[in-house]
């Protein structure tokens, strides 16, 4: 199953030396329920960052 996510990678190319996401990770990226949760988390992180940055 994992091979379909890797079939475009050739050995010893620059792409060969990094992480390649597999099916579950890719599914999570557009899973609406999970992404709604991430949406809240991203907004919280950015709010904290903004509050820390104003002087």
């Amino acid at each position: 199953m994992a091979s379909k996510h890797l079939q475009h990678i050739d050995p010893y190319t620059p792409q060969f030396g990094t992480m390649i996401p597999l099916g579950f990770q890719k599914w999570l990226r557009t899973c609406v329920i999970y992404q709604l949760f991430r949406f809240v988390m991203i907004n919280l992180k950015m709010t904290v960052l903004i509050l820390k940055s104003h002087h």
């Binding site: 999570l28 990226r29 557009t30 899973c31 609406v32 992404q35 949760f37 949406f39 991203i42 907004n43």
Partner: peptide
Amino acid sequence: NGTTGELGLAAHWV
């Protein structure tokens, strides 16, 4: 704690 990164649909919505 303040340096994060993620890829996904949620970031597109943002």
